[in-house]
Design a protein around this nucleic acid. Structure first.
Length: 626
RNA sequence: GCCGCUGUGGCUUAGAGGUAUAGCGAUUCCUUGGUAAGGAAUAGGUCGUGGGUUCAAUUCCCACCAGCGGCUCCA
């Protein structure tokens, strides 16, 4: 729906002749309204499809404006020329009548000019800034069904802590003494308000380290990534993809936008409305995907699948998934509107296979996070299921808790409300005590049927599979957020922050004491590479005309794991005394050969992807992005 | 999305109804240095955007945008 709102001294019209075959019957030929908000209105095709919502949203907009302007009089004026995608005249007329009725209910004085006529009109616009406004209304905001689902879920949801010894405690009776983060996480999940007021630590870091930043020219929640950020993101993407492929995931690529009218998808959208970006293209409406589900399910629907192919695992690193989160919910890299999400689905024949697969993916997720640098100390596990499922599979669930080696949060429902029966999440608790989900997996028992995905079983019968939805690491941006927040916490404890060596854009920095040593540094880098079993070791040279102290300080601020000053001494001896950022890496008082240094980098990099330096090797040739 | 706070050169910031302060960074020059800031000079600002009030607005008012906090949300 398109609206043109004009705050007018007066509006008057005179009906001339028919504009369509069967126009509305007219009571008055002319009419006039003083001190009125004139609402020129064009009803569009999409409004007709979900008219209730369109009306509701239009009322909200009109009411808001009328209240701002403090007007009580509203003239509804059909004006087809505002849109090129009109609803049928009949639909439009009905909607206008409804709109009129609803506005009356809100205590406005409403007049409506007749539909389907050419009319002469005079209007006097007040001309102040708010006096002319145009609005586009799209239907499909809040959906009552999902609203009630949510309420229902809250009412029938029970919170517990499951100890790794298998005992289940009510959340209020559990002793959180040794489990401070679990307490924070549980509180965050179950309660609402938080007392702490703190800016997210990672936002400052992501800018300072030239990883990512807000992009004012885009929509909120769409970030820019500087070379170092793109680099870190790229390595994480590669690593997670590699792990999923090793697990058996078949990597595919699917479109990022889908037709809103597609029969299967529109049903799915009904359940989760109003959280998508929408795109209008040539009179069709598309939404941007919020996960990889659609593409993979549609692909599976068209595939010929035998029970022998199961479990069938389809995988995509979605770049991007889009969710139009409420503006107030967006923060840094923690919650975005466009994000990179590994999404691997597994189609399985029955619940037994689903549970076996669930366990495998649970271990995969745990291992992926661990390798990235987030171990069980950094995460809190949540498990959500129905009471019935829990009681029938207690041992299975307790074993999961045992695997993480500490108590977990359990949410139990009286009845299944969502499309899944069982779900786990690994959550990260940040410096501000906020919790965010990273890895997750779910057993979905609805969508195999909804998407009509079929496999042929042993007896030659067609069956719908169960589907597991897993993101082994969670959104890549969120992984970076967690790594930065973790380091922020360490810094506040007086420790030095550092990224894992395999993720560090620069692993070794050489600081030559004079220009004459730059060549030596280059030679050292080559030699390091020759000693290394890795495809690439990332070393650079700070050749800037700055003092040594200054260059060391800058390297430290960049969190570079190894810093090596090169002068006459090193040139002669061929041995080095690096500054190790962490004592785990090496001893600051010892002298190392290049071979030994290469060995250190190797020990942290083996099994991980490598990529070249994201910036020129010489610091003097690097721009500053921040 | 709602409520509240904030918005000054690339960054951090001072300030006030009469077009603005400093540090860092950048540039140039000096310094050629041994493990967390060597020195000097120069350039750089539509004071978030659009309106309004006023002789005059970056400062006051309104709207919008963005960030932050809280609510909500997190399929």
């Amino acid at each position: 729906m398109k609206l043109l709102l004009i705050h007018s001294d007066y509006i008057e019209y005179e009906v001339k002749k028919k504009a369509i075959k069967t126009p509305e019957e007219i009571e008055k030929k002319t009419d006039r309204f003083d001190e009125a908000l004139t609402v020129f209105t064009a009803i569009e095709k999409i409004d007709a499809d979900s008219s209730d919502q369109a009306i509701k949203n239009a009322i909200t907009e009109i009411t808001k404006t009328a209240e701002q302007l403090k007007v009580k009089n509203i003239m509804l004026y059909p004006y087809a020329h505002l849109s090129s995608d009109l609803a049928s005249p009949k639909q439009a007329q009905n909607l206008l009548i409804e709109l009129e009725y609803e506005l009356r209910q809100k205590d406005f004085n409403v007049k409506r000019s007749p539909f389907g006529w050419y009319k002469a009109f005079k209007i006097s616009c007040k001309g102040h800034p708010l006096s002319e406004l145009s609005k586009t209304i799209t239907p499909g905001e809040k959906d009552d069904e999902s609203e009630s689902l949510k309420k229902e879920r809250k009412l029938s949801s029970y919170w517990h802590i499951l100890n790794e010894d298998g005992t289940l405690h009510k959340i209020d009776e559990f002793d959180f003494k040794q489990h401070e983060n679990l307490r924070k996480f549980s509180f965050y999940e179950k309660e609402k308000s938080r007392a702490v007021k703190q800016e997210p630590a990672h936002v400052k870091l992501m800018k300072k380290l030239e990883i990512a930043d807000y992009e004012p020219a885009s929509d909120a929640g769409n970030m820019r990534y500087y070379p170092k950020g793109r680099f870190i993101k790229k390595l994480l993407e590669q690593y997670v993809t590699r792990r999923v492929v090793d697990y058996g995931g078949l990597e595919v690529e699917t479109p990022i936008m889908y037709d809103m009218q597609h029969p299967t998808l529109s049903k799915y959208l009904q359940r989760f409305p109003a959280r998508q970006y929408q795109i209008e293209s040539d009179k069709r409406n598309f939404f941007l995907r919020f996960a990889a589900c659609f593409g993979q399910f549609l692909m599976a629907h068209d595939a010929t699948i035998s029970y022998k192919d199961l479990p069938l695992k389809l995988y995509e690193m979605t770049k991007y998934s889009f969710r139009r989160e409420q503006s107030g919910e967006l923060t840094g890299l923690r919650r975005l509107r466009a994000f990179t999400m590994p999404d691997v689905h597994a189609m399985v024949s029955d619940m037994d296979m689903a549970m076996d697969e669930f366990k495998i993916r649970f271990n995969l997720s745990l291992s992926v996070l661990q390798d990235i640098g987030l171990d069980t100390n950094d995460i809190e596990m949540a498990l959500r299921t129905t009471k019935e499922f829990y009681n029938e599979n207690k041992e299975f669930i307790v074993n999961l808790a045992k695997r993480v080696g500490k108590p977990i949060l359990v949410e139990l429902w009286d009845e299944r409300i969502f499309y899944f029966v069982l779900k786990f999440e690994f959550n990260f608790v940040d410096k501000s005590d906020k919790a965010s989900a990273l890895s997750t997996d779910q057993i979905d028992i609805e969508n195999g049927e909804r998407y009509d995905i079929q496999f042929t079983d042993m007896n030659g019968e067609q069956k719908h599979p169960l589907i597991l939805h897993c993101s082994p690491s969670g959104a890549i941006e969120r992984v970076i957020y967690a790594l930065l927040e973790k380091e922020a916490i360490r810094m506040s404890n007086g420790e030095k922050a550092m990224l894992p060596v395999w993720l560090s854009p620069t692993q070794i920095r050489f600081i030559p004491l004079g220009d004459e040593f730059i060549e030596n540094c280059n030679a050292y880098i080559e030699e390091l590479q020759n000693h290394s079993s890795l495809e690439l070791i990332r070393a650079d040279v700070d050749d800037r005309d700055e003092s040594v102290g200054r260059r060391i300080r800058d390297a430290e601020k960049e969190w570079i794991p190894l810093i090596i000053v090169v002068g006459e001494k090193e040139k002669t001896a061929g041995r080095f005394k690096p500054r190790f950022r962490s004592s785990e890496l090496g001893d600051n008082n010892k002298v190392y050969s290049l071979e030994e240094l290469a060995g250190i980098i190797d020990s942290y990099g083996t099994g991980f992807p490598t990529e070249p330096l994201p910036l020129p090797r010489l610091l003097s040739k690097r721009p500053r992005f921040k």
